[in-house]
């Protein structure tokens, strides 16, 4: 059964039926914009990304480029549990795990790549992380690059702390925290 909706359009008056006056009104709007922008390009809102970016508003809760948090001894908080790789709907995360010889927490990512050209910025990796090790709060909007290679983030590029860190949350990080305490690095 097709539902029918009756639209009561206002009938056109004579001036509108002739079109010409209305067209002229429309043209006046566009022409006004044209000349305003021609002589005063500063008013154009377009930002020449990626060369220039605008600071995000302070209350913005955007998901921006990923980062890997760092412990106080400089090791990544990530323990290569693969939860982010499992949760990632875009298959853009690649991890290879390796083993510390002396650290209590045993496991760390030898390779941690995020292919930003594939990433859909959904934030599932952040949700999935049990160690509070990955975050999307660098306030860097990604996606602009002149070749694909620039969009492949490796572990070195991802490791970064923000002021007020390292945080000590996360299940396996309990072990790491104890280890750091035993070495007097807390």
């Amino acid at each position: 059964m097709i539902s029918v909706k009756k639209v009561n359009n206002k009938p056109l008056n004579l001036l509108e039926k002739i079109y010409l006056w209305e067209i002229a009104r429309g043209l006046s709007v566009t022409i006004r914009h044209f000349f305003a922008n021609l002589f005063n390009p500063g008013n154009i809102l377009t930002v020449p990304y990626p060369e220039k970016t605008i600071p995000l508003p302070g209350n913005a809760r955007f998901r921006t480029r990923h980062r890997l948090k760092v412990r106080s001894d400089g090791s990544p908080k990530c323990v290569a549990c693969f939860m982010c790789q499992t949760a990632c709907p875009a298959y853009c995360i690649r991890i290879e795990a390796a083993e510390y010889t002396e650290n209590t927490v045993e496991k760390y990512p030898a390779v941690f790549d995020i292919d930003l050209s594939r990433c859909v910025m959904c934030g599932m990796c952040v949700e999935a992380c049990p160690e509070d090790a990955i975050a999307m709060d660098t306030e860097e909007l990604t996606g602009g690059a002149l070749n694909r290679g620039e969009l492949l983030m490796t572990k070195d590029g991802l490791l970064r702390n923000l002021p007020g860190e390292p945080s000590r949350k996360g299940a396996a990080n309990r072990l790491a925290n104890e280890y750091l305490k035993s070495r007097g690095e807390e």
Partner: peptide
């Protein structure tokens, strides 16, 4: 370019 300026954009540059 004209369409861009009319629409408050920059156009190809």
């Amino acid at each position: 370019k004209v369409s861009a300026l009319m629409q408050d954009r920059v156009g190809p540059n």
